[in-house]
């Protein structure tokens, strides 16, 4: 719906905006036509542009990605090129490099390519959350993130993959029924199998060779980067009054360097 609107019409006045939205919403895959320019091409491209032009374009890219991030929708390189980069595609690598630097140096965020085939980017928090004490200024919490946390916990505790039926049954026990409208989440099934999937928090894929067709859930790439498994285990420990270390396998996974360093910056964004 609304998230399809492009920030690239920021420059247009509010009057002309209504019209421009209509053609901005088209979802075309232009990526096929976009080839990464070579270093020498970039160099030549830069020579034709003023520093101010490159700065301006970088700022537009940063803004575009920040707006997308509010909805947690990954940014496709194709969209970025089409709606923001436009005539600057020859210097794309330079602009994205500067945008990444800005995210790191100014915002404490990291722009990560989560899908190198389709070229999708997300922003993850670069600030270490493990040292952070509770902030005096409370951030507005999104109730859906609570639901997500539960789902991720179930998947993690079940060894990384969970069949759809089991997930629905578990949620039903928590009075969240995918068949019924939930007052906070609305269409629960849609939130879980569509919204969370588009946001790359979850993977929802068909199990091969099943009749009738069955689906299963896994952690999505964004969860791998943003959500700390150690925190989930901590949460489960509190919930079930059990020592997190008693789940040997999960504990090992949560505290292996690979997973914990990646997601040191937790889920509170």
């Amino acid at each position: 719906m609304t998230q399809r609107k492009r920030l690239s019409n920021v420059q247009s006045s509010s009057q002309s905006k209504r019209q421009s939205n209509s053609f901005m919403t088209q979802e075309e895959d232009e990526d096929a036509t976009f080839t990464q320019p070579s270093t020498s091409q970039v160099q030549r491209g830069l020579e034709k542009l003023t520093a101010a032009q490159v700065d301006q374009k970088t700022a537009e890219v940063v803004q575009y990605i920040l707006v997308k991030d509010q909805k947690k929708i990954p940014v496709r390189r194709a969209d970025l090129v089409k709606h923001v980069i436009k005539d600057y595609r020859t210097v794309y690598p330079e602009i994205i490099k500067r945008a990444m630097l800005t995210f790191e140096q100014v915002f404490g965020l990291k722009l990560v390519e989560i899908d190198s085939k389709n070229h999708m980017y997300v922003l993850v928090n670069n600030l270490d959350a493990s040292t952070a004490r509770p902030s005096p200024v409370e951030r507005p919490s999104n109730p859906k993130m609570g639901l997500l946390f539960v789902i991720l916990s179930v998947i993690f505790m079940k060894g990384g993959v969970v069949r759809e039926n089991l997930m629905w049954n578990t949620l039903k026990k928590l009075r969240v029924d995918p068949g019924q409208r939930h007052e906070e989440f609305g269409d629960v099934r849609k939130v879980i199998t569509d919204e969370f999937v588009r946001q790359r928090y979850l993977e929802y894929v068909r199990v091969p060779h099943t009749e009738p067709v069955e689906y299963e859930f896994r952690w999505g790439q964004r969860s791998d980067m943003e959500v700390s498994k150690a925190q989930i285990l901590e949460f489960m420990g509190q919930l079930l009054e059990q020592d997190p270390q008693s789940w040997t396998q999960q504990y090992r996974e949560a505290h292996s360097t690979a997973s914990s360093s990646q997601a040191s910056s937790s889920n509170h964004r």
């Binding site: 920040l66 100014v106 915002f107 404490g108 965020l109 928090n125 670069n126 600030l127 952070a132 902030s135 005096p136 200024v137 409370e138 951030r139 507005p140 964004r269």
Partner: peptide, 22 residues
């Protein structure tokens, strides 16, 4: 600085007292 900015991005606005605490 970055944490301050991130918090402000999330909440949009804070009063002076909160800003000092933050």
């Amino acid at each position: 600085h970055r944490r301050f900015l991130q918090t402000l991005m999330a909440v949009g606005v804070t009063d002076e007292q909160e800003a000092r605490a933050l």
